[in-house]
Structures are given as C-alpha cells and as structure tokens.
Nucleic acid binder design. Sequence first.
RNA 1: GCGCCCGUAGCUCAGUGGAUAGAGCACUGGCCUCCGGAGCCAGGUGCGUAGGUUCGAUUCCUACCGGGCGUACCA
Length: 557
Amino acid sequence: MSVITTVKEQISREIKNSLEKARNEGKLSYVDLPDYVIETPREKAHGDFATNVALLLSKEAKMPPRAIAQLIAENYENNGKLIEKIDVAGPGFINFYLNNERMYEALPVVIKEDGNYGRSSFGKGEKVQVEFVSANPTGLLHMGNARGAALGDTLSNLLAAAGYEVTREFYINDAGNQIENFGKSLEARYLELLGQEVSFPEEGYHGEDIIITVKNIIDEVGAKYLNMDEKLRREFLIQKALTEKINAIKSDLARFGVEYDVWFSEQSLHDSGAINKTLQELKERDYIYEKEGALWFKTTLFGEEKDEVIVRSNGLPTYFAADIAYHMNKFERGFQKVINIWGADHHGHVARMKGAMGALGYEPERLQVILMQLVRLFSGDEAVRMSKRSGQYITLSELIDEVGKDAARYFFVMRSSDSHLDFDLDLAKEESSENPVYYVQYAHARINSILKAFSHDMPAVKEVDFRLLQEDAELELIKKIAALPEEITGAAVSMEPHRMTRYAHELASLFHSFYNSCRVLTDDDELKKARILLVDAVRITLRNVLGLLGVSAPERM
RNA sequence: GCGCCCGUAGCUCAGUGGAUAGAGCACUGGCCUCCGGAGCCAGGUGCGUAGGUUCGAUUCCUACCGGGCGUACCA
C-alpha cells in the first residue's frame, strides 16, 4: 500500500474517532457521517491533505462548519506524530500538514520495487476484457483507429498495473455486408488489372491499397480466376485479401507497441451457431417479433425511438445480432467487466447493446463503453479527409513513419477521449521542444546522465539520510513520486488514461525545477547520496509511467 | 425534429460541488565559469448565454445559442 493511501486512511480514522468523541461529550450531534473526502489540496498553503467533512456535516449537526472543524482539530489524536500541524481554514476546511519524516518513507519503497513501483493489487485479479480498434479488415488503419489503439492499450496497461487480469481483444469484422462489398471491389480490380472493362461498384472500396493487394494476388495465381464462377472467384479473392489485410493490421499495431491476446472472428459466430443460439434465447424471452419479413428486436424497451432489425428479410442477421452474440460470448468466458472503445459515431449503439445484455440476464453495467470522439486531421490549416471509400487517408503506418511511435502514442492519449482531437501533422512532425513527449523523455535522459557522472556504486538505502532533503523542490518531488500508485488506480478505475500524460508532465516539470535549484553532485557527500537516490527514484517513476503509456524512456537523446 | 458529446486564456486542451480555475504553444524580459539550455524563473487575459438547486456552482438541473456525431433490413 502506498504511503499516501496509508496516511489518508489514518487521517480518516482519526477524524471519525475525533467526531465520536465530541458526540459522546455532547458537543456535537449527528447520526450518519456524510461522504467526505480527504484530498491533496491544489494550493500548497493549504497543507498536504485537506478534508471537507465539517462543511458537509454542518447541516445535520446544525452547527457552523468552522465550529465543527474546530472540534475535530481539538479532539484529533496525533498518533505517531504523523501530522505536523492541523489548521481550520476558509469556510471550514481542515488542513493537515504531514510530518516530512513520513514522506521520506516513500523513497526506499520506490527503489526497492523498481520496475514494479506503481503497481498494486487494487483490482484483486478481477478479469477484465478490453476490446479496441476492431477496424474493418477491408483496409489499413487510419488515425481514428490509431487513437483507439493508443487509448485501449494504455488503459489495458493501467488496469493490469492496478491489479486486474486484462485481456486485450480485437474483433475482426470478417462477415456481413461490407465483406460482400469488399469482394465486389476486389473482383472489379482483379478483372480491371487483367484488361477487362468493368464498372467499379459505386459503394466499393476505392483505396490504392486494394489495388496493390489484388496485384499481389495476380502475381501468385495469375488469370486463373478470370473465367471462373463469380461466387467462387469472390470467395477466393476475399479469403486471400482478408488474410493479407489482417496481417498488415497486426504488424502495424505491433509497430505501435500494441499486442493483442485474442483476435476474435465475427465469422466464427456465424459458423458455430452462436448467433442462432442468441436469437433463440432472445425469442424465448420475448424480445423479438416478426414484421415485414424481418425479425425485430424490441429496443424501444431500452429507450430507443424505434425497434431494431436483427435479422433482415433476406434471412441474414445484422451486425447487431452478431454483436450481441459476441458480447454474450465474452461474459460466458468469465469476464467480470467488459470494456469497449468505440468511435463516437457508434454512440447510438450503446444503449441497445446494454439493453441486450440486460435482456439476456447480464448486469448491463458490466459492459462499459468508452466513446472516443473522432480525430480531425490537419495539415497546417487544411483539414485532411479520412474516408475509406474515397481512399484518401493517412494510415497508422505512415503516421509512425512521420512522427514516430512515441510522439503519436503520447499525443493520442494526452486528450480526454470525449474531446475532439485535432491532430496537426505538421506540428507533430516537428522534433522540437514543442512536443511534450520530448519534455518528459528529456527529464529521463538528464537523470541518466547525472547517474552516469556520479560514477560510484549506488548508495545503499540504509546509509542514506533522506532527512537532508529539505528544499521545497525536493519535498514536492517526493510527494509527486509517492502519488504514483494512486494515480494509476485512479486513472484505471475512471478509465481515463489521459491522466497519466498529465502526471508524467508534472513529474518531469518538478524534476526540471529541482535540477535548476539543487545541485545533485554537490561537495557535501551525505547530501549527494540522498539526492542521488532521490533522482534515481524519479528515474524509476518516469520510466514506469512512460512504460504504461507505451512510450520509450531513452537514456540519451 | 429527437438523442449523445463538446463549448474554459490569442490557439490546442486539462480541471473541480468548495478556499486565489491550470498546462503546452505563441509573445516579452531574465538565468549556472558547475550534473545535458530539448531546461529554469518572471510577466495576463478566460469558465457560451439566461434561469434554478445549494451555506457555496465553472462543476449538478432546465431552457437557449454555437460546433460535431447519430437517427438504415450499413457497420
């Protein structure tokens, strides 16, 4: 357990004791304690921890907040001299000033835990699945997919670090309409490249990449399929092209630092009968009816405006049917919680998916959907279109070539997922100090440089007196380092990976300030040892955070 | 029309039912004879509008304005 969590719990216990004591003495009356918080105040002048308990209790106790706060402060038992000073401030906040001695305890922990520092068993090994990207395998990955990849992978890292058992999964849409469409496009290109005159399907995939794919196929099999049965020809082309596309997606994601545990085929749900089984179950539970030759799912029960077709009049299930079967399959595999990262253009799908889960007897809250606003791509002032149909888009692969994996991953995670992301390619291409990822990496490189210059064995924790670290810059740095485990669990539970880029930047900033005001390799040997270990703890913390973000921590830049 | 998301500094974005709302970029001026100047320090403007709930609202609620997305027997 982290130092900060321990301290907060201790303070909270003492507050309760203190309140009860006041109540027993008849100085205060209340029945239940409100949901108060112990937080780290924004303002340094407000201490290391603050609580709003007196403000919240005011109404029930029928006393002014400041008077309650005063009672708490007076009755507070300062066990083990944890707290240096208690103040009642403002409208009735209680500020606690931590005894610095306790803060130093964080440093040996960081050094001992090293690569594991920040990890916790908070999630108690609960099984969680994160499904992300799941792009159609009919083309290459674009910027929107890239954002989903960075968010999903970082969130997965965070959950794993917070003690959950995480499975990363990619759902391959290798069935349905768009695959039919894909087949027609492939066929058209195939015939075209072999000298036939064809009209390209209106709704087809116009991308250059498809032409290349078909050229590869022709290199392999030549004109063998020119006069073959249309259906067989398309099936062949689809199989060939899908394999190639999926492999391309896999390798692009691998370059981006994303490795999946499971690649799940939509087609397998059709083949195994899972979709029929799901439909049957929904029918039995009376969620399905027939109208105009199609089967409809009663989504109006979940607040939708109209019911949704689940099996078309041509007998083919819609993607919705497959998706329900897929999610049922997820729960059958034992995941306690299932997280999906979807583009905001799919938001209409959320309520009915949750509804469907409820209809099948699963707690809808076990399905969590992160709606990610779309990426707008700019080149300078000019917007770049991102349509697969028009075939004009920047691929993930090109992005990595241009701005590098580190910058791209950091940028995509930097913004909250429900905020639009304006990605200026020209700016991201610049390898300059404007790029925040360099700022953080630079701190890491700088520390390594200091440690190298130190040229002695690292001092043993036992022979170092951390109390020599008295400067403001040093104390601030220690507090920030100590906060990592809570930052990780907080970002994981709220599913907000962007918090970690903030943390990384703040930590780097505190280090740079420290560096400018305190010399590490000073003549004072004892102080030098303490600072070397402090700086080493910063190095470990930075490296671990960058690791969670999938960004490298270079020793030299 | 209806539904979801967004509206915070010149720009791109964080943030919170509480105490003086932050960062990066841009702009201006300063900083080690010394551990990496890709750094540090200083300088200022802002919660779309109007109501409501509250001891307290930028945060929650309602309406409106502006932007994005959705509203298919597409996914």
